[in-house]
Nucleic acid binder design. Structure first.
Lengths: 93, 93
DNA sequence: TAAACAAGTTTATTTTATAAACCAAATTTT
DNA sequence: AAAATTTGGTTTATAAAATAAACTTGTTTA
């Protein structure tokens, strides 16, 4: 049985990537709202995805407020597609 | 975002259930071969699925050798179908 | 009959996920 | 204008999970 990419096979990280796959980009606040995760957990998981170069993270300022914007990388998109194909086997789809 | 049943959202437990969903039953040795898991890990994960009544476990003797046979319960089948529907949302399927 | 094997289980270790506590800057309240 | 609160996070500590190593019990086999 093909292994499920452990980086994506995590509730929160999969949710993050799922959102990013259908939007050009999403910021920390939006991801927090959508996923209902705590800020700490979200911060950690975003960082893991960034370390693996699955997502790119840009820290800017929106006026005086910090803004952390995330978007998928090509590597991340490929990894996601691969994960989808693998999980389909497990789900008999 | 709907939560992914944590009992099924685990590489090995999902593999076990995936196998059991497409076979009437499967024994410990077969599951071990197919999943490539260690016996200890497999034993633990089977037990978690059994505790939740997702699978039924029957310990018999095949001649003089013990045989542990697993099959899905109705509860387990429903949980799996529910998991499939939920994960589809994450995967945009 | 002692060593090796089979089929597991139990326990210990490592990894992962999660949340609590913290920080800096800006905004609001008194 | 000082104090308290909010915003947008990060760091660190705790809880849970996955995994493997060690052990058990009975069975062959040399």
């Amino acid at each position: 049985m093909k292994e499920l990419d452990p980086l994506l096979h995590s509730q929160l990280r999969l949710a993050i990537v799922s959102i990013l796959m259908s939007a050009v980009e999403a910021d920390f606040v939006y991801l927090k709202e959508q996923t209902q995760a705590t800020a700490g957990n979200l911060s950690v998981q975003i960082d893991k995805l960034r370390e693996a170069d699955y997502i790119a993270v840009e820290k800017t300022f929106e006026g005086k407020k910090p803004r952390t914007v995330c978007r998928m990388t090509d590597t991340g998109r490929k990894a996601f597609e691969n994960y989808v194909q693998t999980v389909k086997l497990y789900l008999h789809l």
